[in-house]
Design a protein around this nucleic acid. Sequence first.
DNA 1: CAAGATTGTGAACGGTCTGTGAACCCGTCA
DNA 2: TGACGGGTTCACAGACCGTTCACAATCTTG
Lengths: 227, 227
Amino acid sequence: MEPLMLFPDPPAPELAQALDLGGYPWKAVSSIEIATRLEPEDGWSGAIICADEDPDSAFTLCRTLRKRDIPFDPVLLLINPTQLTDLSLREDLFDDFCLTPTRPAELAARLKHLFWRTGRGTRPELIEYGPLMLNLETYQAAISGKPLDLTYMEYELLKFLASHPGKVFTRETLLSRVWGYDYYGGARTVDVHVRRLRAKLSEEHAPLIQTVRSVGYRFGESRWSLS
Amino acid sequence: MEPLMLFPDPPAPELAQALDLGGYPWKAVSSIEIATRLEPEDGWSGAIICADEDPDSAFTLCRTLRKRDIPFDPVLLLINPTQLTDLSLREDLFDDFCLTPTRPAELAARLKHLFWRTGRGTRPELIEYGPLMLNLETYQAAISGKPLDLTYMEYELLKFLASHPGKVFTRETLLSRVWGYDYYGGARTVDVHVRRLRAKLSEEHAPLIQTVRSVGYRFGESRWSLS
DNA sequence: CAAGATTGTGAACGGTCTGTGAACCCGTCA
DNA sequence: TGACGGGTTCACAGACCGTTCACAATCTTG
């Protein structure tokens, strides 16, 4: 995990300790110039900015971070209760805040939730596997950013396979799980749908669906990664 | 502004007072059934759920709210400090939390920020999507600046669809959400209304409502920009 | 290498779903 | 009471797509 940016430098000892205990790496900075200089190759994973002692510098720093061409994200603001009213016109400068003196447990919970909601996006229900993305809300699929035009059954089949990457399913299992428990029809139906799926995935990604001879089909890499 | 849902009923007096002072309308509920019954026509604007006294019921309520076909949003959770550890596996059940005993100022700040980032507080009475504009106050609709002459059901259907761009709804869902939970009638009704809507949107904008074969209808472009 | 089993492929059939026009029902209003 | 507007239902045509089949290609087995 990339380090968190902390302001100011040095940070409050309780804060540093809470982060260390929580397993969060961090670097303290005292100005935006230093922050730029210390920035890790893969960027900061977030910032905790304490506006308790020097509010002006703190808010200026927030504003600068947010104005970068890739807006800084997420920002957790630490303020004391008397500063609550200062927030009203600065909603865009932070993603969450925490009152000082901070309880370590609250800080940890806020950090976790912040990373959870910015990291894994609660919004659209997604299935992702490598370059493949399925949006379960909008019934749309894309690979390498390019939208796939799938029919209903193709989508359902791909969705099922991609939900269990690595696992092999027999044609019968697929028929009962994707087509329905009461489905009665030829097993070759699965083959044809798999063929069309492979065709719509580009040739490059067609191997995402693998044939396991005499058994059935598998999506994605094998679990024991033969390579 | 639509009212906030409060749990439990009655809510803590300080909480009720803080909301009243902040100008937030609210209704307290003691169960999901009552919540459903009391739901305003245009939905709740959010929920404040206190898990202090009866955590099990509170978290169950959260889970139910999140599992609706349109996930409930936003949810502010009130907990006491000893419950902080309970949050770790329930990240998806809330959007923000606040420790009890709550400071009115902190609660107000959190509510404000929550509405700010979910984009609800700022534009309460307009729905805009590309060239389409719905004025919920005047019951008027326009596209590319030209007014649309919609009937009541057409307007309601378009309003519902446009409130959730990108998401696919089945005919059954549309019937229950737009026509009413107790509506009993043919699903083809939806088709006909969609056809009339498409006709009234000019031919140019008719594709705003897309058919998802074997599933239902979707308004607007995908969230990941199909272009 | 040969025979059998298994899977890939193209084409065609046929059912299902949607679009569409029109009729029906039922309020309201003159 | 008759005309009108709006919501619902119906019937039908056409497009779409799931299924099947025949045959080619590939793998397995002995």
